[in-house]
Amino acid sequence: MPRYLPFEPGPHRLRVGTRTLDPATWVELGPDADAQLAEKRRLLAGRHADVVAVADADPGPAAVRAAGRELLDTLVGHLLAHHPERYALRGGEVVDPRDGAAYLPAERDGLHPVDLAARLVPEDLCLHLPGRDGVLRLVAASVAFPSRWVLAEKVGRPVAEIHAPVPGYAAAIGTPVDRVLERLDPARGLWRLNGSVLDHPALFQPRRPHREAPPRVPDDVVLRVERQTLRRMPVSGAVVFTIRTHVDPLAALDGDAGARARVAGWLRALPGDLAAYKGLGALAPAVLAWLEGPRAAPAQGPPGRHPLFTGRTPV
């Protein structure tokens, strides 16, 4: 079964859906961490400009670099304290004690601190700072695993503009999101889940991959879940948004009738404009046919709750 299953049947509504973050769980490793770090290194070597972006306007490069450095130092301290089996400090370098390999490249003088920080963990990292107008903006990011959005189109923009393409965002949760960000305390981080169903397993999907033929269900279909966290840096006041991506084959639900019924119920309740935004318009009927097909034994009573389900799917 997937690690997380943030899908629930019933009337759909957008919600912020945040919960208090246990500081020890800020970074989430797991059996896929090594593969994701290797994929990050490959993408950074070949497509660096697509993965890393830094705003050059307000509040200015010096402020952004200082906040990025605070993020890097905070992250290194967290990893050494909470994941000593994977991170150690030797000769001033952060290394993997399993094989002694350094996480950061030797030639790194020109790399931004946010770029360096993201090379340490599977998470994508987005750094936000307010400008002179007080509006919070995405000022630096390393996003190796985007889910059909382009970093270059988001960097430098206010949070509300970044999410403007999401149908119903402004009306439903625009103001609540702003309040969450304004009240975010350095001593109390938050986390949430976001889930979708995609027709391609690639981690790096700035745009929908081209297909010569329709996707096969369930073979080509995956459940893509993002575990997202929010933390405020205590010195700079920067807001750090992390995205830990988990991709599981749809077929992983084959043995759980309750989970299949839950995902099917979520898919049926998804409004048409949001389904189209998530790229599910043409895919949904075939996925529903598989989820509700003869191999899906009927669940007893209402669909059960997945042990790691944490609320109705947010945006």
Rank of each mutant, 00 (worst) to 15 (best):
T74R: 13
H83M: 00
L37T: 06
W26P: 03
K40N: 13
G17A: 15
G77F: 01
G60E: 11
E70A: 01
H78I: 05
A67H: 04
L43S: 02
T18R: 07
R65F: 07
A33G: 09
A33S: 07
A45D: 13
W26K: 14
E85Y: 00
H48K: 07
D34Y: 08
T25D: 14
L43K: 13
H12D: 14
A67S: 12
H83E: 15
R47C: 13
H78G: 07
R86W: 10
A88C: 04
L29H: 11
G68T: 00
Q36P: 00
A57S: 11
P59G: 12
H12V: 06
H12N: 15
L14R: 09
A24C: 08
A24K: 07
L21Y: 04
A88H: 00
H48C: 03
V51I: 04
V27H: 03
A62V: 07
V16C: 06
G60Q: 07
T20V: 02
G17Q: 12
V51W: 02
V52P: 08
A49P: 08
A35Q: 13
R15V: 05
R90M: 03
T74Q: 14
H48F: 12
V64R: 06
L89D: 14
R65L: 11
L29S: 04
R19V: 04
K40Y: 03
H83R: 15
A63R: 15
A49C: 11
G77W: 01
R47G: 08
R42N: 11
G68I: 06
L37P: 01
L37E: 03
V64D: 03
H83W: 13
T20A: 12
V54R: 15
K40S: 05
W26C: 08
A49V: 00
R15M: 14
T20K: 03
P84N: 04
A24N: 09
T74G: 15
L75C: 06
A88E: 09
L14W: 00
E85A: 13
L79Q: 06
A62R: 15
T74A: 10
A53F: 09
D32P: 00
L29Q: 08
E39D: 14
P23D: 01
